[in-house]
Design a binder for these strands. Structure first.
Lengths: 208, 208
DNA sequence: CTAAAAATACGTAGTAGCGGGGATTTCAGG
DNA sequence: CCTGAAATCCCCGCTACTACGTATTTTTAG
């Protein structure tokens, strides 16, 4: 029987230990390594190769998307499963593009974890239900997702500086109306409704 | 040898399973029960009593502070250890007031978990290092800084979820006026002027 | 028990933001 | 030269939020 080697990355040691312990009884899975620091993963994988990488999405120093891209570039055959707190649907698409094979939430149990591993190991994919629903509903409208112009990015950054439309218009020597129009377009393009949503979008997409 | 009974509360099943598995080899600790829903804990404890409660802090439906108060009120002899993502330093003080005996972060390992349990079980206290440092460093400058109440923190989190005052009032079953009042007080205490500033404050102070 | 703190609620008025519409100018690229 | 994208500008109306209040009830702490 072939054993499948796993590598776990999560900034919460407790989660690592948890997964570790959960899989102790699953003989065909073996923990090749783990790390709290995503920046160390690449070189660790050189010494202790693995078949499947289980990684958190939101981590300090390096996010899951960057890590996944880096890993897939260096070890194209490796499968990646993302583990996350909530279903951050902005990032999920990024992760899909980065090439993940599965996605589970931290509120899933041992059984679902094993199911996900088995599926991915067999070359299939596994996505937590909540996720697939989100993705599908966003896919249709994801087509007409427009790119933000330079000016719009500039305005987003000023909004982030807590400037009002008036202040922005003064700063850029344009009319307040223009700022409002840009704002409208920004909200439309980013598919957000409030400054808060916009800010999260901006952070998630590294605009700021 | 006496065994110590534990009860685990965390909205992430994976964390529960993790702790569960981690302690499988620790003979003197026995998992009396666990739940993803803090609201069910009180009645579950009646049927399956425990000595130490391990609880997450940030949970939907009911936060760790409320749960701790309720549990300590009904079972005064029970010890409570808080487990949390980050060192949300605003809430730690609240938790201390609520009567916790220990505090660990989710990025602590198996060894530290056992140490914490042993200490608390022996009637002592255990607080993760990061925490004690935070608390102390914030104590000095905390003088002129107004403390946010539990309710206010709750509202900040709902604001962060892009909810309007109306939605927040519906969710908390209070008047929209009350939400407005809380908002005013929040802005005053945090010395911020806009939701954006507030959000940054919240992120900086690890409220979210 | 009593004082203080927190949570609750309301009024009035003003402003900023937002959604809908339409319109003009500029300028690069086919 | 013409088209289309980007940037500019305006109007109307509505809703949400904000800024000044005041005040009651509930909970906590001493």
């Amino acid at each position: 029987m072939n054993t499948t080697r796993l590598f776990i990355v999560d900034d919460h040691q407790l989660v690592i230990d948890g997964i570790h312990a959960l899989l102790a009884s699953a003989d065909h899975y073996q923990i090749a390594g783990f790390s709290e620091n995503p920046q160390l993963v690449l070189q660790m994988l050189e010494e202790t190769p693995a078949d499947i990488l289980l990684t958190d999405i939101a981590m300090p120093l390096m996010n899951g998307v960057e890590l996944t891209r880096a890993v897939k570039k260096k070890f194209p055959h490796m499968k990646v499963i993302a583990i996350s707190m909530h279903g951050e649907n902005e990032i999920i698409r990024e992760m899909l593009n980065a090439g993940i094979s599965g996605y589970i939430l931290k509120n899933t149990g041992r059984q679902e974890l094993l199911t996900a591993l088995d599926k991915v190991n067999a070359g299939e994919t596994y996505f937590a239900e909540d996720i697939t629903r989100e993705i599908l509903s966003n896919f249709s409208k994801g087509q007409n997702e427009q790119r933000l112009t330079v000016r719009e990015l500039e305005i987003i950054r000023l909004i982030e500086k807590e400037m009002s439309n008036k202040q922005i218009s003064d700063q850029l020597f344009i009319s307040e109306r223009t700022v409002e129009t840009h704002r409208k377009n920004i909200f439309r393009k980013t598919n957000t409704q409030s400054v808060i949503g916009l800010l999260k979008y901006a952070y998630a997409h590294k605009i700021i």
